[in-house]
Design a protein around this nucleic acid. Structure first.
Lengths: 230, 230
DNA sequence: GCGGCTAAAATTGTACACAATCCCGCCCGT
DNA sequence: ACGGGCGGGATTGTGTACAATTTTAGCCGC
């Protein structure tokens, strides 16, 4: 699975950050893995300077944790951090969904429905990682529809960390639960029903939280590099 | 006003970021100002590498805006962004204040009251910038008391941007309004009155927002360097 | 005088070399 | 055999040189 970017021009730090982010969101790179500067640089064909920019950007976003003189590791949120992520989402997303409902256009609806279709397609193809990533982007899309760039940015970070939380604490693997919740949300948005959208989002987040197992302690020692398939 | 760090060891990127952040929060460095890498590096006695880390960190936080091949500038939030900042704060802070009320310890109360004293002292000394910074930190302190690290981080960013918004859109200069609101909040926290704390915080944020003039277009071309007093 | 073009100066972007730090295996002593 | 200390290897941290880009000043022509 060669990245087509490497053929043309040296990818920018943002491009590398995006690629790594997607890999983490799709659970191809798991919490605890180390991202060596040399390794990443060689993979993407850039010097360490650019890699460091990307890694530090992801660290500021909470996706990576940089330990001085040790390197960058995919974050492993503690149980407390996991709860905090969903508590923050509970504060931000329901109201945002309500605001989105009052601003949704027909084009937005089409986009969201197409998004859900992609989720289904990924699930049918047994690409749960891809489906999970799309599922997260659905929430970001709603924040975008609400026309709240600042909040959307926060939600993006929270969804990102949620991906880590799910990787660590998810209970069972059959993740086909979300589809209906998302579909119901789209319906509420289509009918401009802000109150329902807010309630649905709140319930949806509680649902997600309830499917986590926040007792166990995470542990893992993981290899690397081939998880990206390179 | 020499920074005592420069005498001992080269300050870290975090230290530089903190110093710059404080300077911006205290309105000694104003929105639109350019932060040249060489200049900052010379001031703090470090190479550009470390400066870049600090600048990029602040950019990720929203305090600076980095334009490629042009440099780092203190962000100048648009009117829309200004509204978004306070809308995000309205979502996060009231609930957080309620949570804080239910967890406040006697030590926290003492800390907050001492904090308010410092605000008063700064105001009496006509150091409105310092007072403003302390006023912002008060909000961060409440998030810390609520024991919500994730949300506290978001609030920290929002308070930071609020400082920029105030620099651009503040209506009148006599900023002695906050003291009472903060004092009332502490009282609610002391009595473990979460509902009142939530209401007070909500009102306080609306109050702040109402004192902004969000019609005018900001513009300024500002000198630099001596604003830091170096 | 004014607009556009050109070149030089200044500033940021990137890579690389070297220093600092950490990790791990080895060795030695008990 | 086991624990502590030591040293080699590997990885990250930082400064610096050079490349790319932008900006600005100067100049010419109109």
């Amino acid at each position: 699975m060669m990245n087509d970017l490497s053929q043309t021009r040296p990818p920018s730090a943002e491009a590398i950050a995006r690629a790594l982010t997607q890999a983490v969101h799709e659970h191809r790179v798991l919490p605890g893995m180390k991202l060596s500067e040399d390794e990443v640089g060689e993979i993407f064909g850039v010097g360490r300077t650019v890699v460091r920019q990307a890694l530090r950007a992801l660290a500021h976003q909470g996706l990576l944790t940089i330990e001085r003189n040790r390197g960058a590791f995919v974050s492993r949120p503690s149980v407390k951090e996991a709860r905090e992520v969903f508590e923050a989402r509970a504060l931000l997303e329901p109201r945002t969904a309500r605001a989105a409902a009052e601003r949704t256009t027909a084009y937005d609806i089409a986009l969201l429905e197409r998004h859900i279709d992609l989720e289904h397609a990924a699930l049918d193809a047994d690409q749960t990682g891809v489906a999970l990533n799309l599922s997260g982007q659905f929430h970001i899309e709603i924040a975008r529809i609400a026309d709240q760039a600042t909040i959307a940015d926060f939600i993006r970070q929270l969804v990102s960390r949620s991906s880590l939380v799910i990787a660590l604490y998810w209970r069972r693997r059959n993740a086909l639960c979300e589809s209906h919740a998302h579909h119901a949300l789209v319906k509420a948005l289509r009918t401009r029903d802000g109150a329902t959208a807010e309630d649905l989002m709140k319930g949806h987040l509680l649902d997600l939280l309830s499917q986590l197992d926040l007792r166990a302690q995470p542990d893992a020692k993981l290899s690397l590099r081939d998880a990206l398939g390179r």
